[in-house]
Structure formats: structure tokens, C-alpha cells
Amino acid sequence: MNNGVMIVDDNEHIRQSVQMICEFEDLDLVCAASGQECLQQLQSGFRGVILMDIMMPEMDGWQTIREIVEQGLYRGNLILMLTGMGQPDSRMDGLQEYVTDYLTKPFGPDQLVDALRYYLNLVES
């Protein structure tokens, strides 16, 4: 399977926005509405760049990363966190090393596409 992009966000509008942009840019995108779905996609063999929202119900972004690492699914992926401009979070302790970059909400299409292309190239290499 070619490397793709996975958006993990509980907000459907954001997922769709990212999806539309990716369609315009011919990027393969997989959508996950929760941490659980993200894990399922990874277990199904997804590898690539993961756009991970932090604030999600039940399992937030940091817990999802912890599970990814613990289940040995991190290898072959890069994680970009979708964040507000909030304060540093105590829950991220020890997990920053698995986060490659941060993308601040709201983000413009060019900002998104530039980041995705850059990190897709990186993950492929």
C-alpha cells in the first residue's frame, strides 16, 4: 500500500475539508472519526502521515498516540498534531518524541498541502 494521509478528528466538517483539499491535490486520504478508528486503520496496514486532533471524546489524541506506540503501530508513520494555541498539556509528557510537527487550527489549504507533501516525502524516504 502507498503511503497516504489519515485525518483523525471527531469533527466531520474538518474531516470533509481536509478530504476535499486532498482530493484536489491528489493525495490519498483516510478518515478516522476517533482514536479507535485510527488504530483500526493502522492495524489494517495504513502507513503514512497522520493528522491527529488532540481534543476528541473518549480517547483523545495523546491516548491514541500512546496506544499506537504500545501496539507497535508507530513504525512507518509520521504524526502531525492539529492544535489550538493552548497551553502545553501535561498529558503529552513523554509522547512529544512521537510528534513530528504541529499544525495550528485554523489552517489554510496551502499550509496544509505544503506540510502534507513535505512529510509524505519524508516518510517515504
Binding site: 469533527n11 466538517h13 474538518i14 481536509v18 476535499m20 483539499i21 489550538g84 489554510g108 489549504p109 496544509l112
Partner: peptide
């Protein structure tokens, strides 16, 4: 904080 979420699709899609 919460305004950022609904702003994101606008921010991302209007330029497109």
C-alpha cells in the same frame, strides 16, 4: 478555543 474548530473548514476551504 472552540471557535477554531468551525473556523478551520472556512479557513481551509474559502481560499480553495
Amino acid at each position: 478555543h472552540d471557535l477554531r474548530t468551525p473556523l478551520t473548514p472556512l479557513f481551509a476551504l474559502l481560499p480553495m
